[in-house]
Nucleic acid binder design. Sequence first.
DNA 1: TATTGTTATACTCTATAACTATA
DNA 2: TATAGTTATAGAGTATAACAATA
Lengths: 154, 154
Amino acid sequence: MTHPTRAALEPIAWVSHASLEVLTGYLMKRAFNVIHADLVITLETFGLRTITFSALVMVVDNPGITQTQLAQGLCIERSNLVVVVDELETNDLIARNPMPSDRRAYALTATPAGQLLRDRVLAAVHGHEARALAMLTAEERAVLNRLLRRIEGA
Amino acid sequence: MTHPTRAALEPIAWVSHASLEVLTGYLMKRAFNVIHADLVITLETFGLRTITFSALVMVVDNPGITQTQLAQGLCIERSNLVVVVDELETNDLIARNPMPSDRRAYALTATPAGQLLRDRVLAAVHGHEARALAMLTAEERAVLNRLLRRIEGA
DNA sequence: TATTGTTATACTCTATAACTATA
DNA sequence: TATAGTTATAGAGTATAACAATA
């Protein structure tokens, strides 16, 4: 039909998602958006963005890590990591230490302030997830996490 | 410790995710990235982006929908939808029909070409998800979809 | 030659404000 | 006055190329 019928031009009551809500990618994006919006608010309190939060935690968990290794761990480009490390360094949360074995690279370490902030932020983020995922039981969340980990192949 | 130990400056073997891989938001982002990368490749074949794909499907499923309603359904801003509708209209996949009842609004309908493309793309996307989620059984995928739907509250 | 960190750049996605024409 | 569609714009996030210092 090249010309829509009269009925087709009437305003609809509500938007049907029928064909899309069976797609895992579609559902994952929407679920992620809900969680992420609350995470951003949680992190703002500590002056952190999602990427600086993940980077800080990873540096604390991997003292001496280089920027290339950190970028690989975070699945971002080395070039994009530079401003992330700059931001954390400016706020005295991590430090770029010269490596005697390779003078091209820096060994990243968290400062005492960075380690302290990481602990506080991590607790807050666990609280955020408890809130954002309150509709799921602990077991359901464990199932969800296990399934998500298998998708990435980790 | 203000000065990192010698051992802390050694290059690490591999990056530990210990503190992050228990967070659903972190796992969801990484799992989504894997699926989304393959989806983008699948849609490129049809000259579609993620957002134009979703919009096309939603217009076919909701003939006569207005742009404001479509934006709400897609969870994007009306202003950002304009170029999406432009793109689909330019490619003769959907049409902006004047609404007699409200001359400010457009009733969006899919063209025959748009309906045809939707069917072909949707089949391809189902194939893409079968590939990207091959590590999960049909039942596991159903469980995952159900959990994701509940997070969004839909 | 190859790699580390870096800069510059560009492209997508997203969010906000303001405009027009209608209601 | 409020709403539908539109424009302009600015901020994130992301990807690529090229460079200096070092391996």
